[in-house]
Nucleic acid binder design. Structure first.
Lengths: 118, 118
DNA sequence: TACGTAGATCGATGCCCGTCGATCTCGAGC
DNA sequence: GCTCGAGATCGACGGGCATCGATCTACGTA
């Protein structure tokens, strides 16, 4: 299912013995690979990974004004990283009065986590 | 240890009640976060994630000529992705005669895997 | 020695990403 | 209504990334 078997028959077997036994097609199909790659991309920056790390230690929500001073990048940059994480589904946020609170959505990490520890 | 406590005192407490209880500093320090982010970045592309997926299914080595036809990108692109994965330490390769064989280095995935399933 | 083939490298192209300073939005309190 | 502050957005800049076609390298075979 992952890849059409007949789509790419452009590979000729070499003349002598084969280089190896035939491979198995990816167990993870394309759509699922794209979902997991999206989450991996969201974690592919040290600041974002540490942001998620802090949020995961707090079962509840964390205010952005507590998050910003933890990193040596500016406030707009932290806000940008939080947006990237939110668009990847890794975190979500609530606004209450002046403050914005962020929290991790653990289910977003599950697929990648399970695939990695397979 | 993650961040100098006195380095960023630029945050003033709001006048009323605090927005939330003080946060914990990242459990993952910067250097470790960078290492994990590097691995995450290597997995942050669907083709590379599927490449690793195929390689993980084969305990041993897999020839590139078997890998290339699995994806609908050109041979130079597959070669490039394998190089990215190798530079991130996720895979390694051996050359035997005409063929190059790639294999996963499972220890490279361990830190990220354990952090994710924490 | 000459040729064919596996796979790496090169150079170009177009797009995306991290960061910044500046600005905008909107709720709170006077 | 005015002001202040938290945080989101904007525009710009510099660097990196995915992909391609073309080429290069090195090994096997005749």
């Amino acid at each position: 299912m992952p890849v059409d078997l007949e789509l790419t028959p452009k590979q000729k077997r070499p003349p002598g013995e084969p280089c190896c036994e035939p491979v198995v097609y990816p167990a993870v199909e394309r759509a699922e690979a794209e979902r997991m790659a999206t989450v991996a991309k969201a974690l592919a920056d040290p600041v974002r990974l540490q942001l998620v790390d802090v949020l995961r230690q707090h079962a509840g929500e964390v205010c952005v004004c507590e998050l910003t001073p933890l990193f040596d990048v500016g406030q707009p940059t932290v806000s940008h990283h939080l947006k990237v994480l939110r668009q990847a589904g890794v975190v979500d946020s609530v606004r209450r009065g002046l403050w914005a609170y962020y929290y991790v959505r653990p289910e977003a990490l599950e697929a990648l986590s399970r695939w990695l520890s397979r």
